[in-house]
């Protein structure tokens, strides 16, 4: 069965981001697939490569990157949510003349259409809200 996932929570501010990661791992371990993880609202903070938690705390953002890259799962951060919250790839940073970009590897910035497309094509959609 194919799952679409939606994440609304930022790492550390909300447990939703961590719960979603645990669910995503369980989906694959159970032999199912994930068509896309869509980060919306504060969930886009997960895609901020400048997050540097204390060493004795779980690096949730890095764990998401490893999960996405290692399993070839699309991690999409909503562009409108990203721009409001200062998460940018190089293209957007240049477009808005910002001092730098900070999108973590493994994440792609894209539009809301990706949420709708994933929801339509998946067998199940599961949202991790805040």
């Amino acid at each position: 069965m194919n799952f679409a996932m939606v994440v609304h929570g930022a790492p550390y501010s909300s447990e939703a981001c961590l719960s979603a990661l645990k669910f995503a791992r369980a989906v694959l371990e159970s032999g199912h697939s994930i068509n896309r993880v869509f980060f919306y609202h504060d969930g886009v903070h997960t895609a901020n490569s400048l997050i540097a938690p204390p060493q004795d705390e779980a690096p949730i953002s890095e764990q998401w990157q490893e999960f996405g890259i290692g399993n070839n799962i699309e991690l999409i951060a909503c562009i409108a949510s990203c721009l409001r919250r200062g998460v940018m790839d190089e293209t957007e940073a240049n477009r808005y003349e910002k001092s730098g970009s900070n999108l973590a590897s493994g994440f792609t910035i894209s539009g809301l259409g990706q949420l709708i497309d994933a929801s339509i094509s998946a067998d199940r959609v599961v949202t991790f809200g805040v």
Partner: peptide
């Protein structure tokens, strides 16, 4: 979590 996934299916 694997039970959670199973219930969703």
């Amino acid at each position: 979590y694997d039970d959670f996934v199973h219930l969703c299916t």
